[in-house]
Amino acid sequence: MIGRLHGTLLEKQPPYLLIDVNGVGYEVQAPMTTFYQLPALGETATLYTHLAVSETAQQLFGFAQERDRRLFRTLIKVSGVGPKLAVAILSGMETDDIVRCVRDDDVKALVRVPGVGKKTAERLMIELGDRLKQWELPRHDLLTPDVAPAPGNQDKDNQAEAESALIALGYKPTEAAKMIAAAVRQDPVAGSETLIRLALRSMVSG
């Protein structure tokens, strides 16, 4: 079982990234909340990982924080929630926001995540309720600062990359285009990762 990777970050193409560990390149799927915390390409990164094995594939999922992996593993225990949907949920909301959402029985926030219908959201509330009772929420969450990542040069490539990431997470192409267009209006000079973050935040709070 691969539980942790520490190496050089080679590629970032949401929801996939490639990390070199002693000459071996590991392809990892990660939620956007992890991408926000990754260093620049060529720098050293550490990921907590989960290996999902099915009859047709072996998939490695990575997380910047151990608590994110812990919640991922809790989510995939819920009936009807697979690794792909768990990544989508963790991409649209920060880990502690998901916990608060479940504790507050906020079904509306969850159904905005692609792939989560009302029945699935209600099932999440029921099955996660007891499991998340003991989850400790920090008074000051240093992992999710209010200040957005430093913006990059805004151009068509950034928008296209952001749209592709949203589509990979399960949003329809037309919906992804509208979300990114709205994010550009909020921050015209934002880089692709910031655009994605703004788009996902608007879906949760909208």
Rank of each mutant, 00 (worst) to 15 (best):
I126T: 06
G92S: 09
P114L: 14
I98N: 00
R100E: 13
E122I: 01
M125P: 00
V116N: 02
V87S: 02
E122Q: 15
D96V: 07
L124R: 08
D130V: 05
V87P: 01
A121G: 11
I98H: 01
R100S: 08
D104A: 14
V113Q: 02
G82L: 10
D106W: 05
G82R: 04
V116D: 01
G117Q: 07
V81L: 11
I126M: 13
V111I: 10
R112T: 13
V116W: 04
I98M: 06
L110P: 01
M93E: 05
K108P: 07
L85V: 11
D105T: 03
L110D: 03
D105C: 08
K118G: 09
C101A: 12
D130C: 09
V99R: 00
A86H: 02
E94D: 15
V116R: 01
D130L: 05
I89K: 00
P83M: 09
D106E: 15
P114I: 09
K108H: 13
I89S: 01
D97W: 04
R112P: 04
V81G: 03
V81M: 06
V99K: 02
E122C: 04
G129T: 05
V81H: 02
D106L: 07
V87F: 01
D96G: 04
I98P: 02
L124T: 05
I126L: 12
G115I: 11
D130I: 02
E127G: 04
L90Y: 03
L128E: 01
R112A: 15
V81N: 04
T120N: 12
V81F: 07
P83S: 13
D105N: 09
L124P: 09
G80L: 00
T120L: 14
M125Q: 12
V116F: 06
D97Q: 14
R123V: 09
I98F: 08
G129Y: 03
A109F: 04
K119H: 13
C101T: 10
S91P: 03
G92T: 01
E122N: 13
K118C: 10
V111K: 07
V113E: 03
A88D: 03
R100G: 11
G115V: 07
D130N: 12
V111S: 08
R100V: 00
V116C: 10
V116P: 00
V116G: 01
R112Y: 06
R103K: 10
I126P: 03
P83E: 12
A86S: 10
G117T: 07
V81P: 06
G80E: 11
R112S: 15
L128G: 05
V113M: 06
S91T: 03
P83K: 09
T120G: 08
V116A: 06
I98L: 13
V111T: 09
M125A: 10
R123A: 14
E127S: 13
D106N: 13
S91Q: 03
